[in-house]
Write a protein that binds this DNA or RNA. Sequence first.
DNA 1: TTAACTGCAAACGTTTTGCAGGCGG
DNA 2: CCGCCTGCAAAACGTTTGCAGTTAA
Lengths: 181, 181
Amino acid sequence: MSAQPAVRNSHSHDVDLKPAEGTVQPVSKYIEKFREFLSSKGLRMTRERSAVVEEIFSSHEHFDADQLERRMAQRRDARVSRSTVYRCLGQLQEAGLIRKVARQDDREIFEHDYGYPQHDHLICGQCGRLIEFHNDAINDVLQEIAQQHGFRMEGHRLEVQGLCDDCCQPPESRPKKLNLL
Amino acid sequence: MSAQPAVRNSHSHDVDLKPAEGTVQPVSKYIEKFREFLSSKGLRMTRERSAVVEEIFSSHEHFDADQLERRMAQRRDARVSRSTVYRCLGQLQEAGLIRKVARQDDREIFEHDYGYPQHDHLICGQCGRLIEFHNDAINDVLQEIAQQHGFRMEGHRLEVQGLCDDCCQPPESRPKKLNLL
DNA sequence: TTAACTGCAAACGTTTTGCAGGCGG
DNA sequence: CCGCCTGCAAAACGTTTGCAGTTAA
């Protein structure tokens, strides 16, 4: 589709983890994965669904339903309604392609899940920035704790609240809310 | 239809951590703390507000706004409207007396924060049970990670998803759903 | 063909808010 | 007395759903 600018994303959202390997995976990989899932459920791949997957995996940004809807509105190949966006988000979660990662301003924030290393987030309460990090120790500790409680751990969600580097600066030089990705 | 397991959130939650010490703190301690906060903001302590604090700290259960509203309805000293419950919940969070701890069935779940040791939760996706645990290592790791990113950590929220002991059992021996209320 | 899909709009459930009257300090 | 506080009802919010026409397989 779009000529691959190897660029991450336009806006300044640091992604401190790199993609699984050096290069950006072709979007078709995810579409195929989704098609498999759909087919296993007796569902169909449609123009709308593949367009949504394409949009979501065209960059590694965090996003919410509203942002995705707006991004879809700008595409030429398929206009996708809000309902379909929401329905698709649910299915993509079921399929393991994306996951809810945090909650900001009363909205669920999603991110890529499939083919991306497990990680957690530092969330800036001032500017809303999400900083990814990965740490094996946390998983190990959780695994151990779960075991002690006879709990079968399936996953976790860890949000670290605080202030990012920029927002720690004195108020005068502090950037305004840049909540939109 | 949600893809979530169709389970209500249980009202009776196991608390695997004990209160700070053996005895239950007098509720007045919390009311006093709240009064301080209010006063520092030029706000007032009212019959409704103290009743809410009293209700919340009369037991160490997790709760959501709806449950709290119902509990308030049964009190003799003050009828408290839903609006006031919500407004009060917000202020109690600001005051550091309670905090949101998870999200279940589209509702925020709250718990005591002030005077209670820092901890996290195992959340059973089957029966909704919240199991508290405490582990210093996690905080240490997070503190270190935050520092590496120039992030000023203020707190965190860690939800471990999975299945609790009971719900791991084979269906035959599985206890009936913890019922609500 | 036919069952799943879509957009639309209306419905939903939780939380927030505008308002007029009440009350704490 | 001032201005914060309350309950009420209605609004707002993200999200879900019923429906009738559309489309993938």
